[in-house]
Amino acid sequence: MRILVLFAHPVETSFGAALHAKLVEVLRARGHKVDDCDLNAEGFDPVMSRQDRIDYHNVAVNRARVAPYVDRLLAAEALVFSFPVWNMGFPAILKGFVDKVFLPGVSFTLGEDGSYNPRLHNIKRLGVVCTYGGGRLLTFMMGDPPRRFLTRSMRRICAPGARCDYLALHDMNHTRPERRAAFLEKVEAKFSTW
């Protein structure tokens, strides 16, 4: 399977980077073709410019500035997000990627009547590996926006019936090495079944 891994963490020595490395290692060991997209290392520009917004709904030109990323997304059969949750949301670089690459004509179309039509049907499976600074209860009370977005909105634009595996380590601010090691093992076990 062709898998696009979207990684968003600016520090290469972080636990997030270790999770990302384990994820890619396991997927490659399973024989998948992994397109490892480290947004920070690639210098992705997450800012939606004035012109980006003006061109957003014009499918003839909207992907011009992000065409290589659109091509990678459209070539994938599965998509895996690897990121830390900051302030109950995505790191800015990942949010910008979603805003600028998951465009009309790429991941959805709008009908003449304004109807929303998903079209990213090349993506048959989603995966998420993330960490939260806050605990599970706080995350639940805040509505867990990243989980809701990825398991509902993102899943909706993918192939009908696309499965989503969401692995989250909560309360990173209080984790000990053994808990982080156990989560790395959980990531390895889950993605070894892909």
Rank of each mutant, 00 (worst) to 15 (best):
E185C: 15
L27W: 05
R28V: 07
L184Q: 11
G16D: 02
A8L: 06
A18Q: 09
N173Q: 13
M141P: 10
S115A: 15
A60C: 09
P118E: 06
K190L: 13
P10I: 04
V128T: 04
F97E: 01
D99R: 03
S82C: 09
D35R: 07
A78W: 00
K95A: 08
A159C: 05
S107G: 06
L167H: 08
P46S: 09
H57T: 12
E178Y: 10
P91R: 02
K186A: 15
V24F: 11
H20E: 07
S14Q: 05
A78L: 01
L6D: 00
H32C: 11
M88F: 14
Q51Y: 11
D36P: 08
A17Q: 05
D35W: 04
P177A: 10
G105D: 04
Y132I: 07
K95D: 08
D35G: 09
L27D: 04
L167E: 04
V106S: 03
D38V: 09
P68A: 08
H9I: 01
L79C: 00
G133R: 04
R28A: 11
V34F: 08
R163E: 10
D71C: 13
A29T: 10
T193L: 14
R152Q: 13
P68Q: 10
T151C: 06
K22A: 13
V26F: 12
G127T: 02
L23R: 05
F149Q: 08
F7T: 06
E112T: 15
S107N: 04
R125S: 00
R176C: 10
A182S: 09
R152A: 11
M48V: 13
L138T: 12
T109Q: 14
M154G: 00
V80S: 00
N117E: 14
S192M: 13
N87M: 14
F149H: 10
S115H: 11
L120R: 03
A78N: 01
T109M: 14
R53Q: 15
N117P: 09
K95F: 06
A64L: 09
L19F: 07
C158E: 01
R180T: 12
K186V: 13
F97L: 04
M88A: 12
L126W: 02
E188I: 12
M88K: 07
T151G: 03
V24P: 04
R50H: 15
